[in-house]
Design a protein around this nucleic acid. Structure first.
Lengths: 227, 227
DNA sequence: CCACATTTGTACGTATGTATC
DNA sequence: CGATACATACGTACAAATGTG
């Protein structure tokens, strides 16, 4: 039997993108149209499109069409979940990657940040100190990443947050008072040193922050093992 | 029509993993067996399995069976390629992420590396200086990541190398002599400072190394735009 | 080395459900 | 409401790789 028909679909779409005939957000030809153009059945077209969808290249909307997507983070998060499940990685590893991304973003931010952006961080921090919610904590770190302005770091960071988020929530809501105070303290130092352009001191604060989380993860894992 | 049958397949496999009945490398029940167990057609089973395969959770071997996999790097690399193609990220972004990962790995390595591991780096560096091949350059950076010992960083790093590799090859083989000399110089300093446990100096060398690549990427992009 | 059963790979057709316009 | 388009599921058939006897 002739093969690779459904991969022809992937190649066909890729060509359309490379030739500039398709841009993010654009609607693809209908599945039946692709079926006729490529001389394959609609089922085969769907095989190809689903492969692209699983990679986050396109998004299918029932009753409307298939659209070129430009956000692939969701699928990265799913993969990370399975990697955790399979024991290929652990929460410490997630935390290390977050630390690496935040340090790099911070270094960029310290060279580019404006007073307005620093003010924005203070506002988030004030809300965090008032509400003590995990959402605001995530918003704070997201803001740092955004100051770095790198889209890939944002995508990876979002996926990592998605995986480790519930753990952070648990630490902040059910953890010791010490943990919360130290978290808020390192946050404040991060903003202060950013304002003063003291990159080494700021990176030290970030390092301290993630060391605290690292310790907390280790403690949590120890508890889990004994239960 | 009743729906989500193929997602039941994903859930079923996930349960098998969670319950410890399936470990990485294990063979899944045959598609026909799953078909009977879950009361769905083989095509539906394949829909579910292919979804897992596209996420790097399992690997299908024709004539043999479906095996639980524990490497999803390839999937990540494919996604990155499309993100580049769609303009969601660029090579500068790839380079920034590599820099972040290598800096973090280096910081860990400087606390844990043994004289034997440092010797291993020198050996790779000697080969690189003799052959001046891009493969050895990648081997050098891989070795640094490995010293960090974090599996997630290794996975992401591999995917990034897969995407940016051809560009590095081009820089090293067709670039100016200056570029090659500076690359070799920063490499040597990275090893020396690792040996001397001088973390700040080492990180500065890495920063310098990636700044050089960054400049080269900018130059390359400028050339492409004029062509 | 060959023959064979098993298993996955690919493709097709068909039918029906459901969201969009 | 109807037309369109995607979502899901089933069945069938044959190709190709694997493993075994």
């Amino acid at each position: 039997m002739e093969e690779d028909r459904y991969q022809d679909v992937c190649t066909y779409v890729r060509r359309l993108i490379e030739q500039g005939q398709l841009r993010p957000g654009d609607r693809l030809p209908t599945e039946r149209a692709l079926s006729q153009d490529l001389g394959v059945s609609r089922g085969t077209v769907r095989d190809g499109l689903r492969l692209l969808e699983s990679m986050g290249v396109l998004e299918s909307r029932q009753g409307s069409g298939n659209y070129l997507s430009n956000h692939m983070g969701q699928y990265l998060a799913q993969s990370l979940h399975f990697m955790l499940l399979l024991g290929e990685i652990d929460y410490q590893s997630i935390n290390r990657m977050r630390r690496a991304i935040e340090l790099q973003s911070y270094r960029i931010a310290i060279q580019t940040s404006t007073p307005e952006q620093v003010q924005g961080l203070w506002r988030i921090q004030e809300e965090l100190e008032r509400t003590r919610s995990a959402e605001k904590d995530e918003a704070f770190h997201d803001a740092i990443i955004d100051l770095g302005g790198d889209p890939l770091m944002r995508i990876v960071s979002d996926a990592l947050s998605d995986v480790i988020g519930h753990l952070i929530t648990q630490f902040l809501t059910r953890g010791a008072q010490d943990l919360l105070h130290q978290t808020l303290d390192t946050h404040r130092r991060m903003i202060e040193y950013l304002e003063q352009r003291r990159v080494d001191a700021g990176c030290a604060a970030i390092t301290r922050h993630y060391d605290i989380i690292d310790t907390e993860i280790a403690r949590w894992q120890a508890e889990r093992r004994t239960i």
